[in-house]
């Protein structure tokens, strides 16, 4: 199932949290050889994880991490603005309608549909919170995945070449992408909505209508 969890609530999901940070270590350090730090627990955590980001996490049936990504508002500090300005023409991207989405991670041997599930989560976040765009950092192997899912980013800039290339891209949050992502993720609109509402609440009257007077 998809879970949406703020950093300060990860402690309620210790298995999911620990396997996520370990899978990130495996993906970003061992597999991609990015310059990331691994702590004594074998976790890949950076300073943005300390800023209470929102995570979208695919939880496998056994409660372990299957894939995840991390959101931060661009009105405060973001990884793209702090470290990748050379890939955005020097433009610090900042808007209440644009969030940063980084650390797209898939666990080893993740099912094919997990990447669709995560992109669906990103779109749900974008549509429900009235965002026009997401901005993110991604590696070369992701280009093919985004293309296959039918939601390709507009690339602002790329450093490195071939498999080592890292890019900053923009994803346009458009409602008409949802149907395709739902079907590729193999989940119904109702279930996806349920997963979202479980964290963010379902629109219900706050109180007995008698109070209205």
């Amino acid at each position: 199932m998809l879970r949406y969890i703020y950093g300060d609530e990860l402690h309620s999901f210790p298995k999911l949290r620990d396997t996520m940070f370990r899978d990130r270590a495996w993906q970003f350090k061992e597999r991609l050889n990015w310059e990331v730090k691994i702590d004594a627990h074998g976790f890949e955590r950076d300073s943005y994880d300390d800023m209470n980001p929102l995570y979208a996490i695919w939880e496998k049936a056994d409660g372990r991490h299957g894939g995840s990504m991390r959101f931060l508002p661009t009105t405060a500090e973001t990884m793209v603005n702090d470290h990748f300005l050379d890939l955005t023409d020097g433009v610090p991207i900042q808007s209440p309608f644009i969030w940063e989405c980084t650390r797209f991670c898939l666990s080893e041997n993740a099912e094919a549909r997990v990447s669709a599930m995560l992109m669906l989560a990103a779109l749900e976040v974008g549509l429900n919170f009235h965002l026009t765009d997401l901005v993110g950092v991604f590696d070369a192997r992701m280009v093919r995945i985004y293309r296959r899912l039918g939601w390709e980013p507009t690339v602002l800039g790329t450093q490195g070449e071939g498999r080592d290339a890292i890019s900053v891209g923009l994803w346009d949050c458009a409602a008409d992408l949802r149907g395709n992502l739902l079907s590729r993720a193999g989940v119904s609109a109702e279930v996806a909505q349920h997963w979202f509402d479980r964290t963010f609440g379902r629109a219900a009257s706050p109180a007995p209508l008698a109070l209205v007077g």
């Binding site: 703020y6 300060d8 929102l54 963010f200 706050p206």
Partner: peptide
């Protein structure tokens, strides 16, 4: 508090 997503009060836990 400590969040950054906009919210309609009807979605909160009352």
């Amino acid at each position: 508090l400590r969040r950054f997503h906009p919210v309609d009060w009807r979605r909160l836990d009352w």
